[in-house]
Simulated scan of single mutants.
Amino acid sequence: MQIRVLCILLLLTACSQTAPIHNTQAPATPPANESAVGGVTPRFEPPSRIGNKDYQVFGQDYKVWNGIEHYVEEGTASWYGPGFHGLYTSNGELYDQESISAAHKNLPLPSYLKVTNLDNGQAIVVRVNDRGPFHGDRILDLSHGAASRLGIVKPGTARVRLELVKVPRPANADEIIARHEARTIQLMATNSASKAEAAASDLRKEYGDAVRIVSANTLFRLQVGPLDKASAEAALRRLRSSGYQQAFFIN
Rank of each mutant, 00 (worst) to 15 (best):
L87D: 09
P170C: 06
A193N: 11
E45I: 09
T29A: 06
V167Q: 03
D119W: 08
I250R: 04
I68V: 15
G51I: 00
P170G: 08
D137T: 08
W65K: 01
E93K: 07
Q2G: 13
G136H: 05
A102C: 07
Y95T: 13
S192F: 14
A193H: 11
N172R: 06
G243N: 09
P27N: 04
Q245V: 14
R183Y: 08
T18C: 03
A36V: 08
G59R: 02
I185N: 06
V40L: 11
A230S: 10
Q246D: 15
C7P: 02
E163K: 00
A235Y: 08
A32W: 04
A198T: 14
N120G: 09
T24H: 04
E73W: 02
V167G: 01
S101R: 06
F249I: 06
H135F: 14
Q223F: 04
I177W: 01
F248H: 15
L107E: 00
Y80F: 13
Q60T: 13
L140Y: 03
A199H: 15
D96P: 12
R49M: 10
K154F: 10
T18G: 06
E73T: 02
T41H: 14
E233M: 05
Y207E: 07
S101H: 06
T29R: 01
N91Q: 06
S35T: 11
Q97V: 13
V40K: 10
M1I: 13
I50S: 00
N52A: 03
T29H: 01
A102E: 01
D141P: 03
A26S: 01
G121T: 12
K205C: 05
L12V: 12
R138G: 09
K229P: 11
V211G: 05
R237T: 14
L118V: 07
S143Q: 13
Y244V: 10
A234K: 15
R149A: 15
R4K: 10
Q60Y: 05
S48E: 03
A247C: 04
F84M: 15
I177N: 06
V153Y: 09
Y207R: 06
L203V: 09
Q186H: 12
L162H: 04
E163V: 00
I185V: 10
D54G: 08
L222P: 14
S35M: 04
L12H: 12
P133G: 04
T184A: 05
S101V: 11
A196D: 14
E73L: 03
I139M: 00
E69D: 11
V214G: 08
E73S: 00
F134L: 07
S231E: 13
A199S: 15
L6R: 14
V214D: 14
S192L: 13
S90H: 05
S101P: 10
L12R: 08
G75Y: 02
A103M: 03
